[in-house]
Nucleic acid binder design. Sequence first.
DNA 1: CCTGTGCATTCATCTAGATTAATAAATTCA
DNA 2: TGAATTTATTAATCTAGATGAATGCACAGG
Lengths: 181, 181
Amino acid sequence: MDNLKDILNFDSNAKPTSFKKGTIIQRAGEITSLAYYVKKGLLRSYTIDDKGKEHVFMFASEGWIIADLESQEFNRPTELFIDCIENSEILIFDRKSVVNLNLSNEQLLDYNRLLTRRIAVLQKRVIMLMSASAQNRYNFFLEMYPDIPNRVPQRMIASYLGITPQALSTIRAKIVKKYSS
Amino acid sequence: MDNLKDILNFDSNAKPTSFKKGTIIQRAGEITSLAYYVKKGLLRSYTIDDKGKEHVFMFASEGWIIADLESQEFNRPTELFIDCIENSEILIFDRKSVVNLNLSNEQLLDYNRLLTRRIAVLQKRVIMLMSASAQNRYNFFLEMYPDIPNRVPQRMIASYLGITPQALSTIRAKIVKKYSS
DNA sequence: CCTGTGCATTCATCTAGATTAATAAATTCA
DNA sequence: TGAATTTATTAATCTAGATGAATGCACAGG
């Protein structure tokens, strides 16, 4: 069991909230302790910097959970927007209430493992951002999240990788050329 | 209580291991589930890329814990070196044994909070790497870890920020110039 | 069924930061 | 203590990827 839904005792009949593609669920500046479990569909979280440029922090497809742990942990207004890339069904829960769920030791250990895994993923991401070329980061992304590229516009993948859509386009052109020669 | 040592029931009289400055405690390629609690001194973890270049992943001073959660979580040989920037006293423990400690629910929740905090820090780091200039990253680093810069050589700070020592030197020169004009 | 708005791509140009190299200052250690 | 090895700094050049602009496409909404 490494599914947050099970760990947190979600009622499997709990009514998910439906959101249409494009809906912004959370806006930077809000103070919230909500988290979003994706039952169906695809969400993304992102910041907008002072030049108005978007930076995708993460994608969340079925079974994933998405939230701004950073601002929640330090009780600050969130810096992350969260919106729907597809029509989605979401279970919304309050992270504060997790303490009151009276989870078993086993569940807590599982929850723990999940958090550790998240740390592992972020560790990898930091190291990649520091040491790998855009080209390598893209290849790694394709391997790591093979289902995402087909569901997400290029510009968002570029943003996740920390490059411009133009740069990603060039990288892709190079790859095509390589395989057709 | 947000100190791993307390949470994990460390015997406060437990004998720490002493390491001399420069000692490499862990090498890339090893398979291990060890973690290092810094009782005194300063450690760092880093990768070495295929061009032989070091990339500092994190620093750990007193009270911090350092380990390669990524490779441990996925049972792969570690990619991180860990070494001592100062003479250090370290409590070594096996992350696998945490499950057997029979921690109370409260301790597990605390441990949870600690992991969440770590996620928060990494989230911030990823966003900074994607969206902020070297200049801004350096300023943020100084604010966030005011004690580290005095204990760590410039080149390692540069490496942590994802830039070359030369670039950091230039940034610092600019700052000095700004304040002296 | 159009029509407009956003998206992907290509190309020309620009720039933050890398690389290389040379010098001076600080540390290490025999 | 003094030679050898790191480290920090400055400056000249180079480059990955950014920026800006133009073109053709896709498709969302009237």
